[in-house]
Write a protein that binds this DNA or RNA. Structure first.
Lengths: 189, 189
DNA sequence: TACATATTGGAGTGTACGCTCCAGTTCTGC
DNA sequence: GCAGAACTGGAGCGTACACTCCAATATGTA
């Protein structure tokens, strides 16, 4: 939507403000007023650059997830243990944005538009896990690998929820148990 | 809070209205206005009997979960497969209240009061799974069984989220794979 | 019956928030 | 330097919603 340089800069300012608010105050802190005040921008400017408040929030969350990707280039060099660790890092790391991610997923349960976005990113992640799994165990069929990946990711998501609600919960230890025997024995990661 | 007969009856009417709205319209349909209209009750009466709107919602969700309990009496007769099936039934069954349950869990990520309630019921469930696991494999230590139960429940929750978002997702098939080899081979359930 | 207490309805309060509107201004390509 | 499109701020709109207040009434008890 932005076409001029100033517009692109404003867009960045808005995203930075959203990121900061999301990190410091969680999803409730992110009102349009808060974003526009933090970014020193009028509501009109905001809506000139984004379709909705959610638009900006989604963008920030996506960026944050991408930031922990162990193989951003998609070169196929990531192991299962890498992916699990990255997920655990995202969930238990200092950034409160993991919370927002799960809350968005929750909203996806009743909001079709949100569901579509969440599912899209979910599928991409399943793909990554599935590929890594096949790389480590080439005897697996694609379908089997995908089944395993789906289950593992589900478990990781569930463990993440527990971890975020219960600070004493050791997500890493639980997540490690999800790895296939081979990976555990060889002590990868 | 209710002490007279009429009060208890009104309380029931309110819960029934909440249950119906939750089932038919999801969490967004449940406004105070909707509840009180459906129950034919004034807002004052509502707050005479409940501390907050959430109070009523939580109660209904709790009842719904209890309704699929394979061993409500706590006699210790439920197998792991039973528990898994019950969870899958709750998630994929016709009642949309599973959605609400997961959404509440999502809210628990930022709302401490909600988190406390969610965690309490989560702990109870882990206990049930853990006990069943030990019953089926007495060689397991309590700690090991709890670890296994926690992971399994996390996976089930994650699978439930995917299932609710993606109608084509076969939760039952995935959930079955979580059972220990023995249970799968013996074809229990 | 008399009394304390519970129950009732629903108008009203306070607030929060996403988004629109639009007149004025900058920007960019030609 | 001109035209036209992009950008800007921010007042204000519309709405939604949880909860309070309170006078009137019903209920249970001694």
């Amino acid at each position: 939507m932005a076409r001029y340089r100033v517009g692109l800069e404003t867009r960045e300012r808005i995203l930075a403000a959203t990121r900061r608010l999301l990190s410091e105050q969680g999803i409730e802190g992110v009102t349009l007023k808060a974003i526009t005040a933090q970014a020193r921008v009028g509501a009109g400017s905001f809506y000139n650059l984004f379709d909705s408040k959610d638009d900006a929030v989604f963008e920030v969350v996506r960026e944050t997830i991408d930031a922990v990707d162990p193989d951003p280039a998609g070169a196929g060099t990531d192991t299962l243990a890498d992916l699990v660790d990255a997920f655990v890092a995202f969930m238990t790391g200092s950034s409160p944005i993991a919370r927002i991610y799960l809350q968005l997923a929750g909203r996806g349960l009743t909001d079709a538009a949100v569901a579509a976005r969440v599912l899209r990113s979910h599928r991409r992640r399943v793909e990554r896990f599935s590929d890594a799994w096949q790389r480590e165990d080439p005897s697996l069929s694609e379908a089997e690998a995908e089944l395993l990946a789906e289950t593992m990711l589900a478990a990781l998501t569930g463990l993440g929820m527990t971890a975020l609600m219960d600070p004493r919960f050791d997500m890493r230890a639980h997540a490690r148990r999800l790895l296939p025997e081979a990976a555990m024995v060889s002590g990868r990661g």
